[in-house]
């Protein structure tokens, strides 16, 4: 942002101005994953070492000899974001570089599916690393195939319109919370201040810290690239993707929409849901309501004593 435009703005910039990630990356237009790492590095800073498995970011960063991230990256095998990061963090600690953050950065396929064993292992050992899954709800890098993070009703190339994805996406947050890790949070590229606040909090914590980061994908979700942030906001405003955190088992919902919008508001912007009839939309709405109620109850039961 130039100095001139900054003056004209009335909104105070709350994010660090320094850009660690450079603009010359290979993401699609309007890519939520590109925003995701841009924000993540604003929060974590240059003293970060990353493992990146097969995922969109294996390409976004640029081919050899280029790299857009601005921090050291180890491109690792699909299922090894967490296990590679375990090695990195133990070596850093052994070689007296304890002030460096180890970041495992994987997509939903590499996290919910093929990488879940390594992630579970790292979390159970409580290895000192931050794991962020940027969730675009399908195998987008290979060209939009369903993952266990693909939501009910969605079209993908392996769940064509006639046989759209049946059943809800895996609840990765609950899986991670069940590992008794010190910190697990959801965040969205549409709410960068919340994301950065959480990153700053996570940086102060030792052990495995997990982020489920919502990252809209215009290419795979079939919406115009200029509304990715809006789509992300609607996911939260409809309670499709609630923003909450679980710190040492204590639940806190960070955003509670006063009047949640109907899911249709979120679904109708995306081509991947275009085929849905009213009945299926109602099924999705029921699921969202039930999940939201469940989350409220969890907060009630396991929230701050004063809450």
């Amino acid at each position: 942002m130039s100095a001139d435009t900054a003056k004209k703005k009335t909104v105070k910039l709350t994010l660090p101005e320094e850009e660690i990630m450079s603009p010359g990356h290979l993401a699609c237009q309007g890519c939520g994953a590109a925003l995701a790492l841009r924000y993540a590095l604003k929060g974590l800073g240059r003293n970060t070492v990353m493992s990146i498995p097969a995922c969109c970011w294996a390409v976004i960063d640029g081919p050899f000899p280029y790299s857009a991230a601005g921090v050291p990256i180890y491109h690792c095998a699909f299922e090894t974001a967490a296990s590679t990061a375990s090695g990195i963090t133990h070596a850093l600690s052994r070689l007296n570089q304890k002030d460096i953050t180890t970041l495992a950065w994987a997509g939903d396929g590499g996290t919910f599916d093929i990488g879940i064993q390594a992630l579970s292992g790292a979390a159970e050992r409580n290895d000192n690393l931050i794991y962020i899954v940027y969730d675009n709800e399908a195998y987008m890098n290979t060209g939009i195939q369903r993952s266990s993070s693909t939501p009910h009703g969605a079209w993908t190339t392996t769940t064509p319109v006639k046989y759209f994805k049946k059943g809800p996406k895996k609840n990765i947050m609950e899986i991670m919370v069940a590992h008794h890790i010190p910190y697990a949070a959801t965040a969205s590229v549409s709410y960068p201040e919340d994301f950065l606040k959480k990153l700053n909090k996570a940086k102060q914590i030792q052990g495995t810290r997990f982020f489920h980061l919502f990252a809209p994908c215009p290419t795979g979700w079939k919406h115009p690239p200029d509304i990715a942030v809006r789509v992300g906001r609607l996911a939260t405003e409809t309670n499709v993707f609630p923003i909450y955190e679980v710190e040492n088992g204590v639940y806190k919902i960070n955003r509670k929409p006063k009047n949640p919008k109907p899911v249709q508001e979120y679904l109708k912007l995306q081509g991947r849901f275009r085929h849905l009839d009213e009945k299926t939309v109602n099924v999705i709405q029921d699921d969202v309501n039930r999940n939201w109620d469940r989350l409220l109850k969890l907060e009630q039961a396991f929230g701050e004593p004063s809450a």
Partner: peptide
């Protein structure tokens, strides 16, 4: 680790540091 696959992956991450 929880598997040999992770054993080698962790060695790779550590050796790379």
């Amino acid at each position: 680790v929880e598997s040999e696959h992770s054993a080698m992956a962790a060695c790779i991450g550590a050796q790379a540091v």
